[in-house]
Simulated scan of single mutants.
Amino acid sequence: MVMTACQPAAPAGEQGETDPLVKAAKEEGMLTVIALPHDWCNYGEAIETFKAKYGLQVNELNPDAGSADEIEAIKANKDNKGPQAPDVIDVGFGYGPQLVEEKLTMPYKVSTWDTIPDEVKHPDGYWYGDYYGVLAFEVNKDVVQNVPQDWADLLKPEYKGQVALAGDPRASAQAQMSIMAAALANGGTLDDVTPGLEFFKKLNDAGNFVPVIAKQATIAKGETPVVMRWDYNALADKNALAGNPEIEVVIPQSGVIAGVYLQAISAYAPHPNAAKLWMEFLYSDEGQLIWLKGGCHPIRYNDMVQRGVIPQELNDALPPAELYAKAVFPTVEQINNAKQLIAEKWMEVVGADVK
């Protein structure tokens, strides 16, 4: 039995062997995902739990792919029902309009649809927010004696040659969002991120900025001991490094910006029912808690807090909740406008060739 595009399944997490969606997914036998590193938002546990729960195979394509790569994979495999065609994607918020304009995804509303905030879902179900994080400082405490608590701290002479971004601002959404956050902390707005570029010019002129794309290895070695990156990636590093070196994750006192990622089902999915079942799983309380365990705030977080279903130990593992309350969520238009400005003006204003 093939489910219709927007037909809801049984309540998420309650599908049994007799549920039509489960039956249809089992007949397909497989789900193909792309760009899901196991340490990103705890996707490893999500995939293994889904496989065990429903007995489906999960074909994992290119875990290190970016959002643009995921979209290209859909386009390149429109007429291909083989193993290189993704069923589902997880992309940055700014890609939502493109998915609809180019008719790359199919509509589907999960059974928990009403608990997903309206501002982070397409009204017809062509995409929907899955989780979000905020830009944080990831700090190697073995190298940095005084851990910075806010953006202004980064300009102090003691951080000379220590501050880096987790991507090239001319191409990386994470780096661009870092500049947007710096703008908010320095008199700018989501519509005017020029103060963020000016802040990084000051960092670079002071000799504090390191033009290296930071990752776990550079942080651990002390090459980039202070990095701006998504809090869930920083928390994953902290857990993985297990005190060697000791990592502190700081949500700055000002300029707290949140970034949402989106889930969607390919319009050309070879396994459309498995894809829908995957969405039901991810948007169930069980799936949302797996993301939270990985340091990501699931999109249904507020609903789950209100119902008291989040274990205290998961909340305790995150930075203080009151800091997240300061987070602002830019619109797609604001993200795309800032992206264009930063890409065009980075070298002219800041002059640091990040590699």
Rank of each mutant, 00 (worst) to 15 (best):
K156E: 15
K156L: 14
E158G: 04
E158N: 09
Y159G: 01
K160S: 12
K160G: 04
K160R: 13
Q162N: 02
Q162R: 12
Q162M: 15
Q162Y: 05
V163G: 06
A164D: 07
A164C: 04
L165T: 14
A166F: 04
A166L: 02
A166S: 15
G167M: 04
G167L: 07
G167P: 08
G167F: 11
D168Y: 14
P169A: 12
R170F: 01
R170T: 15
A173I: 10
Q174P: 00
A175E: 08
Q176E: 13
M177G: 07
S178T: 13
I179W: 04
I179F: 10
I179S: 07
A181H: 11
A181I: 06
A182W: 07
A183T: 11
A183L: 07
L184V: 08
L184T: 11
A185K: 06
A185G: 08
A185R: 06
N186D: 10
G187L: 05
G187M: 08
T189F: 03
T189E: 07
L190C: 06
V193L: 00
V193K: 03
T194M: 04
G196K: 13
E198D: 15
F200H: 06
K201R: 15
K201F: 02
K201S: 09
K202I: 01
N204S: 14
N204T: 13
N204E: 12
D205Y: 07
A206Y: 06
A206R: 09
N208C: 00
N208R: 01
F209R: 05
V210H: 07
V210Q: 10
V210A: 03
P211A: 15
P211C: 14
I213R: 15
I213A: 11
Q216D: 08
A217R: 03
T218L: 11
T218Y: 14
T218R: 07
I219L: 14
I219H: 00
I219R: 00
A220S: 10
A220I: 02
A220C: 02
K221Y: 03
G222S: 10
E223I: 07
E223M: 02
T224K: 09
V226W: 05
V227L: 03
M228H: 06
R229N: 12
R229I: 07
W230S: 10
W230I: 00
D231T: 08
D231V: 11
Y232G: 00
N233M: 03
N233Y: 01
A234D: 10
A234E: 11
L235R: 14
A236W: 12
A236R: 14
A236H: 06
D237R: 00
D237N: 04
D237E: 15
K238T: 05
K238D: 08
K238R: 13
N239M: 12
N239P: 00
A240W: 12
A240Y: 12
L241M: 15
A242E: 14
A242V: 05
A242N: 15
G243K: 11
N244I: 00
N244K: 13
N244A: 11
P245M: 06
E246W: 00
E246I: 00
E246G: 00
I247D: 09
E248V: 02
V249S: 08
V249I: 09
V250L: 09
V250N: 11
I251W: 01
P252M: 02
S254Y: 13
S254L: 02
G255R: 08
V256L: 01
V256G: 01
V256A: 01
I257F: 09
I257M: 13
A258M: 05
A258R: 12
A258T: 08
G259H: 11
V260T: 12
V260F: 09
